[in-house]
Design a protein around this nucleic acid. Sequence first.
DNA 1: CTCCAAATAATAATGATTATCATTATTGTT
DNA 2: AACAATAATGATAATCATTATTATTTGGAG
Lengths: 126, 126
Amino acid sequence: MKYSKQRDSILKTLQENVVHPTADFIYAKAKEENPNISLATVYRNLNQLAENGDIKKISGLDNMTHFDHNTHKHFHFICTKCGKIFDVPYNIAPELGNRLAEQTGLTAETYDISFQGLCSDCRDNR
Amino acid sequence: MKYSKQRDSILKTLQENVVHPTADFIYAKAKEENPNISLATVYRNLNQLAENGDIKKISGLDNMTHFDHNTHKHFHFICTKCGKIFDVPYNIAPELGNRLAEQTGLTAETYDISFQGLCSDCRDNR
DNA sequence: CTCCAAATAATAATGATTATCATTATTGTT
DNA sequence: AACAATAATGATAATCATTATTATTTGGAG
């Protein structure tokens, strides 16, 4: 993997914006620093970085793929009003794999949990 | 809501095929009975039925929306090899909402869990 | 039987993502 | 420093699932 300043600013954007951004958001941000970066370059790099394990893809929250610089296992909470995404610690459900095996006989390699509800800001402001 | 034989065969297809089908699959099946049904009609009706609570949408398993005639709360396991989807009982994680509140202060209205792994067939055949 | 709202078929449009391809940039080697 | 080799890029076309549009048909209340 060769260095490129485009990939650099994509990674930097991802690390500085802890909001679990989409490709579009990253594209807009990276453009400030690198005005003629292409959207395709953003997608290409995000996918490569995800394959290398440097970042993580989050899908299933809404109809868009979000990206996460936090690569250790954890879950997400999405606010149904403002769309903001929050991290939820992995140890919130340590026994899920065992329970699954007991109750169904299935063996899970991984599992994802996505929580939905109002975040505290959105709950307060109405 | 007016009767239509198209909607009827869409619902029937969904009830007879407990495989959590996609719109495409339902379209193909419904076509056998109703050769000039339109794909748009399938989508339109699936969305209506889901809004009425007669069926459920499942997203986040792969890049396609699946549909489920089982409307009570439950989770899903998807086989990473054959793509088959299995039901997982809702009571596998009864305390998740409370744990979330305790650990993060967030209040979830709902949560989804999707398990990934090999189903028993795929595990045995290699 | 008539009428009208709701449903349909066909198809165009959309929106996110991926593929293509000619050009450019990086990096190890003479 | 010039040179390949090749990875990365920008521009844009293509793809794929889904949704919107529109003219036409149909179900069912009166």
